[in-house]
Design a binder for these strands. Structure first.
Lengths: 357, 357
DNA sequence: GTGAAAGCGCTAACAT
DNA sequence: ATGTTAGCGCTTTCAC
């Protein structure tokens, strides 16, 4: 069964037109008569034409430019990992004439975000990958992009009201349920669990609330009245202050476990729990930050849910590049698995941070 | 910084020879005078030539044939999923002149394996992806391949003494430790856990023993003498017989949990536990087979460790094709993460069975 | 031994 | 609007 692949030349022959015409309809560049158009379209419908990517990239001289806009990797390890995913994707596509330009904004200043997005916009990239940290500014920017017909992919947090080419992230409600499940496992005696939001500006905390709701929902459905669920916002960048808050919370003898909704918060809480030597507290948090990895190995953290920012950005560029290059529509929403990381499977994840393909 | 890439043509010009000559030295096909050789080599040393792989694949007309040898997908859902990974990879590479030929052997008859491998061998494929189920036969076959200089990738179970181009699978010892960790979590009262090997021929059970050892090792290190660990082989294809065996085991009031080392075994044990209504037993097993998924959702199974046979085969072909096509060396051993699947994160895995890229 | 030249499938500029 | 043609960088064949 050596079925030769169909080439543009074949389509042209079948449709009785020239390859130039076929190329024009394939890329709808116009300048094609209604008659020729129909002939080509009908033969296209009959056969399964799959363009030869290799040949396309060789033949074309167009260079696609993708602008990636994320928080400064230096400010936060989570975003440093996101940056790694970008770099990985960038080298992968480099030989295919897709260039990635990165813009780093200040995680704590929306003016910086505003400024960067505008800078990116004037450069007129062919596509944009964005971490929409600042809700209003992001919305404004993305409307601009829609007006300029620049396709965009968003990741990390969803903006369902805008319709991106693709959203990449996790189901945060389910994420909270996973945390709850791990928290409740094998807990027999009555007790209390607290959801901790540590040092999060209100913008982002809308999303963190989803995790909390999922967490609470799990226990509601399970109907286990033996467990008291509470939630607490702590805004203290000073470790000592943070510790004081925590100690008040932990003075309640019923507290059996803590669920921290951010990666950085997880590291902060773990450090304090370790200092206080409270190994009895079950701690569940987010992401494979170096500190979190250590605390997981040491047993201070019991489980991490991996949000895999690295993979998120990687996929973001992947989807966008495939769209620009191959006109392949990505999934409107691409939800990543809620990876449960424990002490024993940690190493197996560290070895293969990125999906080899 | 639009630095043009160096082309063969450039080298030819610099060395004062023709592109044909440059090509000959690049691939050391001989037929080059000592003088020309030196001229080319010296200019090659001066500049950093990176061949354009895109152009290479377009220019070449060689069709690579990859032989994939796995158990009959009809015999076992686990292998059916492996087959899906193959099909996925096959369509991906189809247009790039990499053809995949599959050979299905009988999972229960090594003669069939022997026969199939020989059939594959006489067809002289350019590369082989193999599930080395039958140890001795596999070893013999792979030695043949080495003699014939056919590169091969193995997956699922490792044969460390032979040196494959790449091995794709999981660390089975660690896999057992993960199971143990999940088993012990929150278990306060003393109790007993049993490792179950269900209906496995001795060949394969060598590898299953690794899982058992990892499981035992976890408790040894943890130094929790409160837990009694045992292991049991059950060879009964009849459900009733299997149930009898299990009931004897479960009549021991101390039994708190079971760890089943195979995917099929997991499904079988789960079915019986459900029938016996033993929801008190913590059950940990392998893989997202349809039955296992149901039992996980119903709560009969507490955790599954995903071996992702689909991804394994996909990667196998991926690595081999990249090697043949682009001369890209794959990792000698590619260990997949030990994915922990619970009721709450199950859906997030079902949505994305394969890594999108 | 060596160079010239014809592709590979596609794009894009150029005639018509 | 349509067909022809010259590349893209490399492989491979074929004269010399």
């Amino acid at each position: 069964m050596e079925k030769k692949n169909i080439r543009i030349k074949d389509i042209a022959q079948l449709a009785g037109v020239s390859i130039g015409t076929v190329d024009r309809v394939l890329h709808n560049r116009g300048k094609v008569s209604e008659e020729a158009l129909q002939k080509v379209l009908s033969t296209l419908r009959e056969i399964d034409y799959k363009p030869n990517l290799i040949a396309r990239t060789l033949g074309t001289k167009k260079v696609f430019r993708i602008a990636v806009i994320i928080p400064d990797p230096a400010q936060d390890e989570y975003w440093a990992q996101a940056h790694l995913g970008i770099q990985h994707a960038a080298v992968e596509w480099n030989q295919y004439d897709v260039k990635v330009e990165t813009y780093f904004f200040d995680l704590y200043h929306h003016e910086s975000f505003l400024q960067l997005t505008q800078a990116a916009h004037v450069n007129k990239p062919d596509g944009i990958v964005l971490a929409p940290i600042f809700y209003h500014e992001a919305l404004h920017f993305l409307h601009q992009c829609q007006a300029s017909k620049i396709p965009f992919v968003i990741f990390n947090t969803n903006l369902p009201e805008i319709h991106p080419l693709s959203f990449i992230g996790q189901n945060l409600f389910d994420s909270g349920r996973v945390a709850a499940e791990l928290m409740s496992l094998g807990q027999t005696a009555p007790g209390a669990f607290t959801v901790l939001h540590v040092n999060e500006a209100s913008e982002n905390s809308i999303h963190l609330l989803d995790k909390q709701k999922g967490f609470e929902h799990f226990f509601k459905v399970k109907n286990q009245p033996d467990f008291k669920i509470s939630a607490l916002d702590i805004n203290e960048t000073e470790e000592n202050q943070l510790q004081e808050h925590l100690q008040i919370l932990l003075s309640d003898a019923e507290i059996k476990g803590l669920f921290v909704t951010t990666s950085k918060g997880t590291a902060a809480i773990a450090a304090i729990l370790k200092k206080l030597n409270r190994t009895d507290i079950r701690l569940i948090g987010y992401d494979l930050l170096p500190e979190n990895i250590q605390h997981l190995q040491a047993g201070t953290i019991d489980f991490l849910i991996n949000q895999n920012s690295r993979h998120q950005t990687f996929l973001g560029i992947q989807h966008l590049a495939n769209y620009l290059f191959l006109k392949k529509e990505p999934p409107a929403t691409n939800l990543l698995p809620l990876e449960i990381i424990s002490r024993e499977n940690l190493n197996s994840y560290l070895g293969s941070a990125l999906p080899q393909f």
